[in-house]
Write a protein that binds this DNA or RNA. Structure first.
Length: 402
RNA sequence: GGAGGGGUGCCGGAGUGGUUAAUCGGAGCAGUCUGUAAAACUGCCGCCCGUUGGGCUGCGUAGGUUCGAAUCCUACCCCCUCCA
C-alpha cells in the first residue's frame, strides 16, 4: 500500500523499492535523507538511460533530501562485471579525473549541485590496508557472491570470473557504510550490489539502506537496455538535431515508456497517448515528435528544440535541404565559364565524410550521392561554386571551388 | 605439478589443404516504400585500381611443408576449464 503523499515519487519510473514501507517511514520522519548514487568514471557520458534515476534524485532533492555522489575512482579500475566479462584497461589517474569532470558536468544538468555532497572513493580506498581488505572480505562468502545472477551464469557455464570482479560488489557496499547512506539509487542491474550494501551496513552496526531501483531504459534499437557499448544510446550532451533525430528513430512501441521515464509529461496525458496508440487514432510519428521536443528542451532549451524540430521536418519529412550546411573546398581540374570539373573524392576522404575510396564507389553505385538533387554516378563531375552535395541521407556539403 | 579446450573480420560465431575476402546472425551503411532517421523489403558491408574485370593484405606471432594453408608441421605468446 503506497502512501498517497508519496505516490508519484515512489511509483512513476520506479521498478522496485526495498523496503518500501521502511522508505516511507524515513520520508515521514522528516529527516533529511542521504541518497547515495555511485558512478564509475570509466565511461563519462551520461545518456537517457541514466536520466531515469537522476530525475528521481532531483525529485527527492526537491523534498529537501541530500544526494551523495560517490565517484568510483577505484571501482572504475575493476569495471562493472555485470554483463560482459571483458577486462578493461586500467585507467590512469588523469583519465579518471577527466572522465569524472565530464560526467559531473552532465550530472548536474539534472541534479541540483547545491544539494549534493561529492565523495571520491579514493578518500577511503586510497589508504586502505591489507588488514582492512581482510576484514572486509571476511564478511562475505563465495556462495553469497555466486548468488548474483551473472556471476552464477558465468561460473556454471565455465566462464572466468576474476577475483577483482568479485571484489567489486564489496567495494560498492562498503561505500554505503562510509557515506552512511539511507537510500541507494540504481538501475535494476544494481540490485544485488545494493542489497549487499544493506547486509554490510548491518553487520557493521549501521541501519541498512533502502534500495531504490529504477527501470532500465530500452535503447534506440528497441530491444536491449540503453548502453554506450551497444551503441543504442542517446547522450545528453549530443547536439539538439542529433538528439531529436535519435528520438525519432526509436521504435514506436517505446514511445510511452520514454514519456513516462524521461519527461515531465503528466500521467493523465500519457494514459491518453496509450489510448490513442491502441485505437490507432494518432500517428505515432506525431507523438514521437512531441517526445523528441520534450527531451531536447530538457537538455538544450526550448529554442534549440524548436529548431531541431524544424530541421527534422524540413530535411527528413519534406526532403529539403537543411539550413546550416558546412562549406568545404574542392579542387577544380578544369574550368569552363562558371563550370568546373571536380573530383569529389579527395575532399570527402580528407574530411572523413567517406571512409575510403571503396566506400565512395559503393555509395555512388547505390545512388547515395547527389549533386543539387541529381544522383551522381562518378566521383568526377561538373560543379559550380555553391552547389550542394548530399552524401547518404544525412550529410550535406556546400561546395566551394578552389 | 598434471590433463584438456581455445585464439577467425566491429561483435558473436562457422569453417580442419584448393571453387574462401572467408557460411550465418547482430551492428553499421545505402536504396525502395512509408505517417517517422519506426516497421517492412532489397542491396552493400578489408584496401587499392583502368571496376560485368584485376591487384594487394588478411584468420594470435614467427618460421616451415606444399603447385596451393585460416586449415598440416615447429617454436613462441596469450586466454580458459578440470584435477592436485
Amino acid at each position: 500500500m503506497t502512501n498517497l503523499k508519496f505516490g508519484p515519487l515512489l511509483k512513476r519510473g520506479v521498478e522496485e523499492i526495498v523496503v518500501e514501507q521502511e522508505l516511507i517511514k524515513l520520508l515521514e520522519s522528516g529527516r533529511r535523507l542521504r541518497l547515495k548514487q555511485g558512478f564509475d568514471p570509466s565511461s563519462p557520458d551520461i545518456h537517457l538511460g541514466h536520466i531515469v534515476g537522476l530525475r528521481k534524485l532531483r525529485q527527492f532533492q526537491e523534498l529537501g533530501h541530500k544526494v551523495i555522489l560517490v565517484v568510483g575512482d577505484w571501482t572504475a579500475r575493476i569495471g562493472d562485471p555485470s554483463g560482459q566479462s571483458a577486462t578493461r584497461p586500467m585507467l590512469s589517474p588523469q583519465e579518471v579525473e577527466a572522465n569524472a569532470q565530464t560526467y559531473m558536468k552532465q550530472f548536474f544538468k539534472v541534479v541540483d549541485k547545491g544539494k549534493t555532497e561529492l565523495r571520491w572513493q579514493s578518500e577511503w580506498y586510497g589508504q586502505f590496508t591489507l588488514d582492512e581488505v581482510i576484514k572486509l572480505t571476511s564478511k562475505f562468502t563465495i556462495a553469497q557472491l555466486l548468488a548474483r545472477e551473472d556471476f552464477n551464469k558465468r561460473y556454471s557455464s565455465g566462464n572466468p570470473i576474476s577475483l577483482t570482479e568479485l571484489l567489486y560488489p564489496l567495494l560498492q557496499s562498503y561505500d554505503s557504510v562510509v557515506v552512511k547512506a539511507d537510500v541507494e539509487f540504481g538501475g535494476t542491474d544494481q540490485k544485488f550490489n545494493c542489497l549487499l550494501g544493506r547486509e554490510l551496513q548491518q553487520s557493521m552496526g549501521q541501519p541498512s539502506q533502502q534500495v531504490f531501483l529504477v527501470p532500465l531504459l530500452i535503447g534506440t534499437d528497441g530491444s536491449q537496455k540503453m548502453s554506450k557499448s551497444l551503441d543504442n544510446h542517446i547522450g545528453i550532451d549530443e547536439p539538439p538535431q542529433e538528439m531529436y533525430g535519435k528520438v525519432m528513430s526509436i521504435p514506436d512501441h517505446l514511445i510511452t515508456d520514454y514519456f513516462e521515464l524521461v519527461t515531465d509529461v503528466s500521467d493523465e496525458e500519457i494514459v491518453a497517448f496509450k489510448e490513442q496508440l491502441n485505437t490507432r487514432s494518432v500517428n505515432p510519428m506525431n507523438l514521437k515528435k512531441r517526445l523528441a521536443y520534450e527531451i531536447v528542451t530538457q537538455f538544450h532549451g526550448n529554442q534549440a528544440a524548436v529548431k531541431a524540430e524544424r530541421h527534422f521536418t524540413k530535411v527528413f519529412q519534406q526532403g529539403e535541404i537543411p539550413e546550416d550546411i558546412p562549406k568545404y573546398t574542392f579542387t577544380a581540374k578544369h574550368a569552363q565559364d562558371e563550370l568546373y570539373e571536380v573530383d569529389i573524392a579527395p575532399t570527402l576522404l580528407q574530411k572523413g565524410l567517406v571512409k575510403s575510396n571503396s566506400e565512395l564507389k559503393r555509395l555512388l553505385a547505390q545512388g547515395a550521392i547527389e549533386l543539387n538533387g541529381k544522383k551522381l554516378s562518378s566521383n568526377i563531375t561538373v560543379a559550380q561554386d555553391g552547389d550542394i552535395l548530399r552524401i547518404g541521407k544525412r550529410c550535406f556539403v556546400r561546395i566551394a571551388i578552389k
